[in-house]
Design a protein around this nucleic acid. Sequence first.
RNA 1: GGCCCGUUCGUCUAUCGGUUAGGACACCUGGUUUUCAACCAGGUAAGAGGGGUUCGACUCCCCUACGGGCUGCCA
Length: 472
Amino acid sequence: MSSTPSTPVVTRFAPSPTGYLHIGGGRTALFNWLYARGRGGKFLLRIEDTDRERSTPEATAAILRGLTWLGLDWDDEVVSQFERRDRHAAVAHEMLVRGTAYKCFSTQEEIAAYRAAREAEGASYAVFLSPWRDADPASYPDGAPYVIRMMAPRTGETLIDDQVQGRVVIRNETLDDMIVLRSDGTPTYMLAVVVDDHDMGVTHVIRGDDHLNNAARQQMVYDAMGWDVPVWAHIPLIHGPDGKKLSKRHGATGVEDYQTMGYPAAGMRNYLTRLGWAHGDAEIFTTAEAMQMFDLSGIGRAPARLDFKKLENTCGHHMALADDAALLHELEAFLTAAQLPPLTDGQKVWMERALPVLKKSAKTFPELIEKASFLMIFRPVLPDLKAAEALDAVSRGILRSLTPRLQNASWTKEALELILNEVAAENGIGFGKLAAPLRAAIAGRTVTPSVYDMMLVLGREETVGRLGDALS
RNA sequence: GGCCCGUUCGUCUAUCGGUUAGGACACCUGGUUUUCAACCAGGUAAGAGGGGUUCGACUCCCCUACGGGCUGCCA
């Protein structure tokens, strides 16, 4: 590896804008981001939009949104690969001058025929060997279209010294002279990535292991141009819960899907970091801690399966750990993203009071809202079937005796505790028998946070009001 | 087909030749308790199979099986 320890780290994420940000891509971006940020380096973003047929500005916007939601910020301007096509072409021609590439006039039909013939011979592999590789320029056909092919070594082997996969050896005879410039003058991906990574000063290429084989060919381009080869780190792809490659039939594959499902971003980052990477027994950590700990050697070599239960658990920890004000903001952002009605001013006040308690037991925003349902509803509260059952005649009588005492109580947990215990004792019932109808009257349902927490959040006026509604 | 990569509890993983193979999620049991959670304590559960190397293999090598990737004038 040519980059010395003193070289500042530069990583990049380079998605193709052909759809939303895939969860696997999100994790790749996260790894690159953590690696750079943990070392005071740069994290760059490049959009690989050279395929004009499939690239759309909407997809680019979706990718940036996904990264932003995940909390991954990038340095410098976003680079468009397409806009750099002239530079790519210039490099291809420079390779021609250097004698590390050549013009090939073979047509696609000729290439197909070549392969078919080799296969008919029973050849184990059929890399195309261009007849123009060693041709005399004098024999070039006039004005015929041509591609520029890299003059790859035909013998020996190429070594990829990969930080995750180890030393991977690829025999050069299994690699063909790949095309670097198409007959229409546009660069191919293999050329464009190398030129861009070099020009952008990328020192560490951390990407999916579907590129592991490509690395060998790309390394040849670096060599052909006399450029420093970056540090390689090819990480395994994420699989679905069934161990198969993650695809649409698994459901959520886009980063934004996870946002609308209500996972907090911090939990998502933690989970994604831990998926396929480990640092001893560290499980729950902040992003700052992740930056400290993250290293290439901790990345596993086997594809990891997505586990929603663990994702939820991890998110639960981060929900509980979250700063209240920040959590409220994220909750509001979630409501918007999920196209749910925003909080009213009154609900917001209650939510601020409820958050310190509710966040401890919720794993996702939908769950948080579910637990906060008692403050999302308006008077008069309509009890559901079970709540109505809890409000039988006897219970209503007891609540009736409770109400006046609440009107004069100081609104603290201790004072309320005293009153409720007294009322329960006076009626010769356990606290549970009192809490059930009280809960039903306040929340209209039988599963809620603690009655004290609800009363404290709602305040005296609302609590007494709801009791009155239920008893009238 | 060829080439490349991978395989430890159900899942994510620790281990980097010598451990009762550890942790986390999930699951089960118990505790706490005003409901549901949360929380606390405990428990079940793993080295794909077969050969080597070695005093000793989860760890190193080979084969097989299974999974994945690449094999484009896509990225």
